[in-house]
Each structure stands twice: as C-alpha cells, then as structure tokens.
Design a protein around this nucleic acid. Structure first.
Lengths: 212, 212
DNA sequence: TAGATTGTTAATCGATTAACAATC
DNA sequence: TAGATTGTTAATCGATTAACAATC
C-alpha cells in the first residue's frame, strides 16, 4: 500500500517521473531486481536519496535483496496516478500546441485531452489527433458539460491573464503553462506547472558562457 | 561591473531569467525604480532573497532608494550574456523542432541557430525561418566549418545516445535536450539542460490527484 | 536631518548524505 | 549461517530568511 506521509516535498515529487522512466527501461531490458546502490549509479544520485525518496510512500524493498523492478514500477505507476486520467483541454493550437499533441502521449502521463480551443479562423473546425478545434467562445459551455480539471496553455503572453481568469471560473484547477506569463501568485489554490522554455534556454546559454 | 564570486549556485542562476523577464516588463511599463520589497511581492519571493541573489554579481542598488530598473535590466542582460550569441544547431526538425524555431526567438536568448539537421527525405532541402534543413550526413563537415557550441535535440530517445556521441566529438559542449533520454552522466564536462516535458506533465497530473 | 532601503552577517530551515541496526 | 541491502535515525550541508548596521 502506498502513502505514509501526506506532506511530501516538491524535491521528492519532481524526482518521481524520472524514477518511473528508469524503472520502465530496466523492466524493458529484462532486469528483475535492482539495489538502491546500482540504481543510484545509473541515475547519478546517491543510494541514500533513493531509499529516502521511496520510503516517503511505503516500504517497497527487501533487505539483502533490493527492489523488485516490476513491483516498484507498478508502485510508481499508482503513486503517480497514471491509472486515473485527468480530463484536460488545450488553449491555443498554434505551432507549439500542435507539436505538443503530436509529440506527447498525454494518456501515458495520466491526462486525457478532450478539447482544443483557438480563435484563428483557419484552425476552427480542423482537427488534431481526432480532436476538433473549437472557438474559445464555446469554452464555458464545454466546461459546464465536460468539467476539465487541467488546461494546457499554448497562448501568447498577452492573452494569458484574461483566459486564466475565465478558466478558473470554469472550474479548472491545474495549468500546464507554456505562455511567458507567471500564473501562480494571483490564484493561490490553483496548481501550476510553468514551462518557461525561454528561461531554460537562457540558463543554458548563460552556463556555457560562464564556463570560459 | 559584474562578477564577485565564481561559484554561484544553480538555484540562483535559475532565477536570473525570471528576474530579467520581470525587469523587462517593469521597464516596458515605465517604472523607473523598484525596491527589493516591492519586486519580491510581485514575483512571490522574499526581499532578502532578491538582495542576496543580486549581490552575487555586484552592488546594483542604492540604500534608501532601491534599484534603478533600467540599470538593473542592463546588468542582467550582461550577466546572462545576451550580448554574445552562441552558435547553435538543431537536430530533428519534426513537429517539436519546427515549433520551437517558430515559437522562440533564439537570438533574444543569447543563441544563434545556424543549422538544422534531419534525416527525413521529405524535410531535407526545405527551410524553416530561412535555414535550410540538411541531412545529418553533412553534420561533421558543417561543425568543422561553423563550430557550433550548442545543440538542440528534438530527436527520438533511441537516436539520442549515438547522436550525442557524434556531437561531442564534433566539439559541441552544451545540449538543450528534449529527447526522453538523460545525457549528463556519461559526459561529465558537457553542459546539459534536459527539458523533460513528459516528466513535467506527470508531475502536474500527480499534484492534481494528490490534492483530493 | 529623518526615513528608506540597501549590502551583509547571523539564524533558521530543509534537503541531502552518512551511518547503522534490523532483517531478508 | 554469512552477506547484502534495506528502512531509518543522526550528521552535514546548502539555501532561504531574518536582522541590522551602513548609507543614500
């Protein structure tokens, strides 16, 4: 059984998908058991940290043996909540939104994309991966019916504040935000994952120059 | 003048682009001076942290006054190295690569994209934003000539290990990695910014489920 | 000058690592 | 059983916050 403590730090949570990814690969390669020491080596972490992290959720290992890959993989699958798909919508079906849908398997990440909205005339009515793009005018009506909990924002910065407000009113409680706009502050009880690609590239470019 | 200490923590460095973004907005809105207290409030940080962070690079404020927005913006511009463009290439011009190029202003992030490589027949010879897509067969020759320092990886996981090896051999020292593959470990002196979009979405989806 | 706000040192908090008894 | 490796407590390390003297 999972869950030992309710207050697990973000540092731990952010490592979970990576554990999941490595376990998946081990499983695929037919590895049946792994010790925290060996997993640590492969992942560039310490064995201590892995044991500490996993013990936030339960006791999945066995003294003298290590962890059963298949079992640990399944535990992570449940911990991450991959068995229960969150209904979601996407706002903005430009280059980036389009690419995300084609590039990512949402269902494999615990998310079910059910609607796409954009205001560009030439996009409305076309579809991506079987989902028809609608005008944002249809947003409220759609949310009433489908109750999406998560919104993926692939919209320009300027459009963000107003749209976030509308979405919060519609009952959306989580945002995967690609717009260059920081949501978190104004809506303290909303869950936000900001993906600032520009910040990420600048950080890298800065590190490279710092080296010299 | 910038630079006080050479060993600045990653936590600080990762906040720099965000400071830069907020300063940019303040400047655009005609704000001329700002105190650490007010900036902290707007950014959801503490005033202490902002002063500590900035003091890693120099003394940019004035007691009793605060920070001159325009001056601090320029300092950050230099600290981040935005004045000196790093030559870069992109590997993989599928949906995601395509979207990144159209969606991001590389030059505004201190990076100059000079080449795009892909092996799909139907892409070779076409161009994105004025850059012609080449076969990866031309990679070594191109690197010899242009000496790109940074590579953007928009390739499938399976293709990554071999391609990274080739690129490192070609003298590439920094990777902006979108493939679901972790580079860092094997090449300790290479700078890597992994953007694991899948991990990011899983984290969000997990946080949402945890709430209940 | 008095008020404001910095730069910087000290205190606190949290996360990572080390150590080791428990046990498979 | 002996060896290995966990779960967990204690020690260390680093990052954030608080406090305050310096000074514009």
């Amino acid at each position: 059984m999972a869950s030992k403590d309710t207050s697990i730090s973000m540092s731990v949570i952010r490592r979970l998908p990576r554990y999941y990814r490595f376990l998946h690969d081990l499983k695929e390669n037919g590895v049946q058991r792994i010790s925290s020491r060996e997993l640590a080596q492969r992942m560039g972490l310490t064995a201590s940290q892995i044991r500490q992290d996993l013990n936030c959720f339960g006791e999945f290992g066995q003294q003298g043996y290590g962890y059963a890959v298949d079992q640990l993989y399944n535990e992570l699958y449940h911990i991450l909540g991959m068995d229960d798909l969150t209904p979601a919508i996407m706002l903005g079906a430009g280059n980036l939104g389009h690419a995300l849908i084609n590039h990512m398997n949402f269902a494999n990440r615990g998310v079910k994309l059910e609607g796409i909205f954009d205001d560009a005339e030439h996009l409305i009515g076309t579809d991506i991966q079987g989902i028809t793009i609608q005008s944002t005018e249809a947003l409220e009506e759609f949310c009433d019916r489908q109750k999406p909990q998560l919104a993926v924002l692939c919209i320009p910065k300027e459009a963000a504040p107003r749209l976030v407000k509308r979405l919060v009113k519609c009952g959306v409680t989580a945002f995967w935000n690609f717009s260059h706009y920081d949501i978190a502050m104004q809506y303290p009880d909303v869950i936000v994952e900001n993906v600032h690609l520009g910040d990420s590239l600048m950080t890298l470019s800065h590190l490279l120059k710092r080296e010299k």
